[in-house]
Structures are given as structure tokens and as C-alpha cells.
């Protein structure tokens, strides 16, 4: 189980509501996929005519399923981005490159009770949570805020859900967040995933009520690992200029043109690839440089960090 990208094939697409598309993906070679945990996501490389998007989607398939990954994509209104591509262009038989699953929103295994609050499409990570808890027998409750017309949309994935409540924007049907948070026993972990306003409201209400921050979790979606805005790097010693694309790291770009760049961990921790910056402003994403070194702006870790300026000159 070693690798970083997956070749996937679209097995089925299915519109489960007017703006929600369910997509089923399998390994292009027909083999088993890496298993994934509740709350995991994959990053899909969506190759449009003019540009490429890298969007992260929560896996809604039951944790550990290796025959297929399932995602649900909401079409973002007025977007010409990845969600429009999935809704308009993607069809069965299409091939996609995806990252291996990663997880920034795993359930807390020490919890005595799992309290989930979902807003709209933010329900997707909880669909895999529910499957996990149903298998392990963990105590849980899911509170879903959605449109009244969508209260049944996710029912196929929620049949094993324990306590389940729906809320919508009408008198007598709104979620009273402070009341819900006030009556929870010690050992409860709270998870929220939804629009930023809901996330903020829940996190603030929990803090006001005295929940320890360690028991409050919010999905941070699609954290970029090494990609970002394109920029130019000039390698002063070798005299090579290289364009760093949006979906590659500076280190990958340097390697692509064949310049010698020592590296070890490729994750911003070991310090081996640290390089002198002669011109330009780095955007630091590593765990290695100290605050003073970051502010000094004279060093960069090309394996993860990028540029704020349009051009960097490196001592390489």
C-alpha cells in the first residue's frame, strides 16, 4: 500500500437532486482501491478544455470499501469551476487522476458520544461517519440543516443512523444550537461541517457554553498541499528559468528541468532542501523554518513552499 495517485474510471453518475450529482468511481485497472476512513476525501484532477481543477471531495462510500469510491458534488451557482465540470461534462467511462485518500476530519476514537451538525452539502463526510459508527456501535446523533425539500435526499446513506434530526428555515423547524450544545455529557465530541456561517456559529456557541476546544471539530476542506498560483523561479547558479505550475511543487518543477536539488522528506520537516532566496518573497508552508527565518525571507523549503511574488531567484 504505497503510492500517491490513482487512475480512476467513472462508473456511474446519477442526479439525486436538482443540483446534486452522485458519482461512482472505480480503479481504472479493475483492482482494489486503497481503503479509506470515515471523513476521508480524495482530490480529483478535473481536466477541462482550458484549465485543470483540483477539487477535494468527501468520500461517502462506507469506510473500507475498496471496489468503488462514491462522492456527491453540489453544483455551485454561477460557477464555471470544477463543480460545473462534474455536472456538465463528466460521464461514465471518463478517466480521472485522483490523489490517494487523505483525512483531515477523522472521528475521535476516544469519544463516548459523537454529535454531528451538518449544513447542506456539508453532510457528506457524515455519511461515512454514520456507516463507521453503525459498525463499531458508537453512540451518535446527526443534526442536519437543509432545505425542507431535501430532507429525504440522503436517506439511502442514513438507514443505519442512530439519532437523526432535520431542520429547515421555518418557524418551529430551526436548530437551536445553544440548547443542543447545553445538554451534552462529558466525553461528547462535536463535529460541524457546513457553510462558513454555520461552522462559525456552532464553534462560537460551543466556546460560549464552555466546551473544551479539544472536543470541537470542523471540516477544513481542500487544504492545498503543494499546489497554488503559478510563478517563475530562476535558478541563479545553473542559469535556468522554470515556470512552476499550479499543480506542482517548486521542488517538482526544479526536478523537472533537471537541476540538482537535495531533498529528503518532501514534506517540509527535515530541512534538507532548504534553499537561499536571492530575490522575491516566499510563501512559507513548511514546519521547519522558525519565525525569524520566515520573516527574514532569505530561506525557502521548495518541497512545500511557493512564492508570493511572481518570481523567485534561488541560489541553486
Amino acid at each position: 500500500m504505497i503510492g500517491d495517485t490513482l487512475e480512476l474510471i467513472v462508473v456511474a453518475v446519477d442526479d439525486i437532486a436538482s443540483s446534486l450529482r452522485h458519482v461512482r468511481l472505480a480503479a481504472a485497472d479493475g483492482g482494489p482501491l486503497p481503503p479509506a476512513a470515515a471523513g476521508a476525501n480524495i482530490q480529483l484532477r478535473l481536466q477541462g478544455a482550458a484549465r485543470t481543477w483540483r477539487n477535494a471531495y468527501s468520500l461517502i462510500s462506507p469506510p473500507g470499501r475498496r471496489d468503488a469510491y462514491e462522492i456527491i458534488v453540489r453544483r455551485v451557482p454561477e460557477s464555471r469551476g470544477g463543480s460545473a465540470f462534474v455536472h456538465e461534462v463528466l460521464k461514465p467511462g471518463d478517466r480521472l487522476v485522483a490523489s490517494w485518500p487523505s483525512n483531515l476530519f477523522a472521528p475521535q476514537r476516544t469519544a463516548r458520544h459523537h454529535l454531528m451538525i451538518a449544513g447542506g452539502i456539508g453532510i457528506t463526510p457524515f455519511l461515512s461517519y454514520v456507516a463507521d459508527f453503525a459498525h463499531s456501535g458508537a453512540s451518535h446523533a446527526l443534526h442536519v440543516c437543509c432545505r425542507e425539500s431535501e430532507t429525504g435526499t440522503f436517506a439511502p446513506w442514513l438507514q443505519a443512523c442512530g439519532e437523526l434530526h432535520h431542520y429547515w428555515d421555518a418557524d418551529g423547524h430551526r436548530l437551536d444550537i445553544p440548547a443542543l450544545l447545553a445538554r451534552q455529557p462529558a466525553g461528547t465530541h462535536l463535529y460541524v461541517c457546513g457553510p462558513a456561517a454555520l461552522n462559525d456559529e456552532v464553534i462560537q456557541a460551543a466556546a460560549n457554553a464552555g466546551w473544551p476546544a479539544s472536543h470541537v471539530h470542523c471540516e477544513h476542506f481542500g487544504a492545498a498541499l503543494s499546489g497554488g498560483t503559478p510563478f517563475t523561479a530562476f535558478l541563479s547558479r545553473s542559469g535556468i528559468e522554470v515556470e512552476v505550475g499550479e499543480s506542482e511543487s517548486l521542488l517538482e518543477a526544479i526536478e523537472r528541468v533537471g537541476a540538482a536539488a537535495p531533498c529528503l522528506c518532501r514534506g517540509g520537516a527535515c530541512g534538507v532542501c532548504v534553499t537561499r532566496v536571492l530575490e522575491g518573497e516566499p510563501e512559507h508552508r513548511d514546519h521547519y523554518l522558525g519565525a525569524a527565518e520566515r520573516e527574514g525571507g532569505e530561506l525557502i523549503m521548495p518541497c512545500v513552499s511557493r512564492a508570493r511574488s511572481t518570481r523567485l531567484v534561488l541560489d541553486l
Binding site: L181, A182, P185, A186, G187, A209, G210, W211, P212, H215
Partner: peptide, 8 residues
């Protein structure tokens, strides 16, 4: 009734 999540 056990402890609550906001207890100290």
C-alpha cells in the same frame, strides 16, 4: 447524572 461537557 455524570459530568457534562462544559463542567470543570
Amino acid at each position: 447524572d455524570g459530568f457534562g461537557i462544559a463542567d470543570r
